[in-house]
Nucleic acid binder design. Structure first.
Lengths: 203, 203
DNA sequence: CGTTCAGTTGACTAAGGTCAATTCCCGTGG
DNA sequence: CCACGGGAATTGACCTTAGTCAACTGAACG
């Protein structure tokens, strides 16, 4: 039941059964219906999730408009990282784009494991480090490529992936996500994305 | 001599003298002349730095053009993070924009401290986590604000800073960095930045 | 079968990119 | 001290591309 989570953690550090079992008692399954929120803006969170089934999006509000900046697929960790780490109200919302099934556990528990156990602590550090690397990559992409180039790269699936746990299969973005969210993700409007797609397909 | 580094680390975790002294023997001072490279593209690095004096920039090459995506000021940690973590050749270069004085030490040593000492390990994890938070913020800025809005935010110094160690004083960007690099940082051309400045100053 | 909403398309606007000329600044050498 | 050279920044003219608004299309769903 929980083995996909273990597999993914073990993509980063090897766990003994003993270590794994430190976490297991705190795991729960949580189901979300399509359009249900996993994280709401303004609330403070202590909950980590791991996607077993489904897709979620992560958005900010700017002048009342939802701006989708990220997605979570199967085998991704999903959380209001900012809120968990700083204990401040979340500035972003996370919404299920389809019916989802998550493994959830409290961030506190993870912090406890960090204190108690070296392997778990190493997992926490490495996870954060890999997230840094993947964010650096995306940020550089936003700075040095045009919207059209970014779209090209997205459909070519050219981005590097440091660990499966971070980004599952990116090609799924194209297949499973409504275009207006992809447009946000690329930093453009849905209308522009439609035109870019048109341009690109004619080449 | 090394106390600014200790102060900044202690912005994240408290160190006993004993813990601090685990690192000290491995510290060295390194001076860079203006325009000298701290990191070259294609070489693999194991060196961390901490800026005592001066400013550096961090750039990628795209079709032969240098694209500056980040800066390092006094009291910032500077490193080819990607190269240190993955042991792969660096894709970016880091250049001194002025004569610089750095404290340097091997990343290996830090890894050794992580293994040996819980406080150091916690430092490593928290550092990576704060970097994640600050990168998330910058990335969202690139996605949801226009170039002009980004420039406004830059001069207003509106960005949050999770720890001094990450980003020193951002207002210094405006004062100390040639505009063409700031343009890259904002994801626009120097010509556009000049026009934006003109527009903004007339409001 | 109609309602709804995402996606496309068209017309127009606004903003950034490009290229080139000019000005400004600063340092260097006569 | 002044004149010159070189690079950075500004400005102008023009182009390209994204944004906006609105109309239309088409598929999904009840």
């Amino acid at each position: 039941m929980y083995s996909p989570l273990r597999n993914n953690i073990e993509g980063i550090v090897k766990l003994t059964d003993l270590e794994w079992n430190l976490l297991v008692p705190h795991l729960k399954i949580r189901k979300l219906k399509k359009n249900e929120l996993f994280v709401e803006i303004g609330k403070t969170y202590n909950e980590m999730g791991f996607v077993l089934k489904g897709v979620l999006r992560h958005y900010y509000l700017k002048e009342g408009e939802e701006k989708t900046t990220s997605f979570y697929f199967e085998n991704n960790i999903v959380a209001a990282y900012f809120s968990c780490i700083t204990n401040q109200p979340s500035k972003l919302a996370i919404e299920a784009l389809s019916n989802c099934e998550l493994i959830v556990f409290p961030y506190n528990v993870l912090l406890g494991l960090y204190k108690k156990n070296k392997t778990w602590h190493e997992f926490g550090r490495l996870l954060a480090e890999y997230i840094v690397l993947s964010m650096e990559e995306r940020m550089v992409g936003l700075l040095i490529y045009s919207p059209e180039e970014r779209y090209q790269k997205l459909i070519e699936g050219n981005e590097e992936r440091y660990r499966k746990i971070l980004k599952g299969n990116k090609t799924k973005i194209i297949e499973n996500i409504p275009q207006r969210y992809i447009a946000d993700y690329l930093g453009i409007t849905p209308v522009s994305l439609s035109r870019i797609r048109n341009r690109v397909s004619k080449k």
